[in-house]
Amino acid sequence: MSVDKPSAHVTHREVRQQIKLPFSKAVEISLKSIKIRFARSIITAAGIMLGIAFFASVRMSAEFSVIHDKIVNETVAAFQAGKLHHITEDQTRMITSATTDVKAARQDAIAARERLDWLSIMALIVCTVGITNAMLMSVTERYKEIGTMKCLGALDSFIVKLFFIESCLTGFISSVIGFLLGWFIISLVHIFTDGLQAFGVQFWTSSLTLFGISVLIGTFLTFIATIAPAVRAAQMPPAAALRVEI
């Protein structure tokens, strides 16, 4: 066991040297952090997931309502043009309700969509609160760890980097799962209520757009909710971070 004698004298020039945390190492540590605190990570992720699932389901309902309207309009137009040869029971219902009370039906549909818009704003707020709460907790419970890392020579930026990677990973994965959950449930409901007629090209394109939006929102909110407390924790003097008891 040969351990070098400690350097006898550290000059100012040596102090100038850099210390570093390679990105691959940071990813490794972040992944480990998520994996080991798996139960905790699941709860954090569930908060994000449910928020995004709520948002996705509300937006998806709105999309279905738009698609439904379009189908009704097309059916009525086709009927009036005399292009419909075999009229199904569904179509009869559509045509009679659309033609007998056009004005009331329109207003109903518009009001319903406005309600959904409000609901999706609410969903986003719930989502934000849930994510902020989850990530705030996850930073706070690690103050001591942050203080320790700084004692070992970590720069503030290392701490922020670790949380950045961790939050983006958590945010991304839980948003994807959350979207799929909300999307699947609402689609399933519409299969049973409206049948398969709504699942055309428009359904898939709007699903894909909504997928992108949901994942972006989820990841971004998670990132924002983590970075503020992480930066604050990283800037604390190590002594103060180590003192924090939870």
């Binding site: 040596e14 102090v15 210390i19 004692c151 070992l152 020579g153 503030d156």
Partner: peptide, 17 residues
């Protein structure tokens, strides 16, 4: 080396090494 003269990088280096 006066510790008050060190910037964040140098302080981290000191803690590290």
């Amino acid at each position: 080396v006066d510790m008050a003269q060190l910037d964040a990088q140098e302080l981290a280096y000191l803690r590290c090494h």
